[in-house]
Design a protein around this nucleic acid. Structure first.
Lengths: 142, 142
DNA sequence: CCCTTTACTTATCATTTGATAACAAAATCC
DNA sequence: GGATTTTGTTATCAAATGATAAGTAAAGGG
C-alpha cells in the first residue's frame, strides 16, 4: 500500500508547519527572554496552572534546569507560584499579570500575521480548514 | 466573525504538531550529533543539494555559525560539498553515503513510530487524512 | 514511626549555541 | 579593470542550555 506515501506527506507537512510557525513567531518575544524561557511561558499560557514537573516532562528538560529557568521567570515577575494546599510539595504555576500582558501581546502579533496569511481565503475555505484541522488533530496529532 | 476561533484552533493544532513530532523524533539522533547538527542534516536530507546560504536562511542561523557546524559535519564524514562550477563561491552540499545511512535509519524509526500511531485507522480514514494534509498545506502552511 | 518516594532546589561544570569582527576569493557592475 | 557585492571562512567571546551531584521538605506505605 501507500502508507509510505502518507508518511512522506506527513514529513513534508510537519516541516511546513514548523517553518510557518517559526516565521509567524519570529521576533515576537521580548529581548529580555531567552528562547527557552519564551517557550516555557507559551506553555504556561496555554496550560495554566501547571506544575514544575509538568513543564519538565512536556519540554523534555531536567527538573534542575526547569527550576532554574522558572526561578528567573519568577524574578522577572512574569509568573506566579502558589503552593498546592492538598500537597505542599507542588506548586501551581500561572502567568502573573505582567506575564499575561506580555504573552497577550505576543499572541496578538502572531494572530495578526496569521490573519494576513489567510486574508485571501473565502468563508467557505475557512470552514474547510477548520474541519481539516479538527480531523487531523483527532486522528493523527493527539 | 469567528476568525479568532480559527486562530485559537490553529494555535492548539500547531502546538499538538510540535508535541507529536517531538515525540516521534525523540532519541532518533546519534549521540555524536548536537541537536542543531541533526536539524541541519534533516534539512539537507530533504532539500539536497543545498548551499550554505540556504541553510543559514532557512534555519535562521548566521553564516559563521552555519559554516562552523557544517565543517564539523564534514569532518564527521556525514556530508559532502561540491563547488558549483558555474559559481565557484558556492558549494552544493549533500549527504555523504554515511550521512544517508544515518538519516535513513532515523527516518525509518520515525516512520515506524508513525505507523503505530495510525495503525488503527481504516483505509478510508487515511484517505481523508491525506486530503486534509493537502488542503492545509496548500491554504495555510505554504 | 521509620523508610521510601515524590517534588523541587541549589550549586557547579561542560557543551552548545549565538554574535561579532576581520578576512579571502569569486562574481558582478559600471 | 577597479570598485562592489556575494559567498563563505576563521577566530574569539559571551550567553544559553544540558547534565550531574547533593540536598530539603512533604507525602505515602508498611
Amino acid at each position: 500500500m501507500d502508507n509510505n506515501l502518507l508518511f512522506q506527506q506527513i514529513v513534508t507537512f510537519t516541516t511546513a508547519v514548523h517553518q510557518v510557525t517559526s516565521d509567524l513567531t519570529k521576533d515576537v518575544k521580548s529581548g529580555a527572554l531567552t528562547p527557552v524561557q519564551y517557550k516555557i511561558l507559551e506553555y504556561i499560557a496555554v496550560s495554566q496552572p501547571v506544575t514544575l514537573s509538568e513543564i519538565s516532562d512536556c519540554m523534555h528538560m531536567s527538573m534542575p534546569n526547569t527550576s532554574r529557568e522558572l526561578k528567573k521567570l519568577t524574578e522577572k515577575q512574569l509568573c506566579s507560584r502558589v503552593t498546592d494546599p492538598s500537597d505542599r510539595r507542588r506548586q501551581g504555576i500561572t502567568l502573573s499579570p505582567a506575564g499575561e500582558v506580555m504573552m497577550g501581546e505576543a499572541f496578538q502579533t502572531i494572530g495578526r500575521r496569521f490573519e494576513e496569511r489567510i486574508a485571501h481565503l473565502s468563508e467557505e475555505e475557512r470552514r474547510e480548514i477548520g474541519q481539516a484541522l479538527g480531523l487531523l488533530q483527532q486522528k493523527v496529532f493527539y
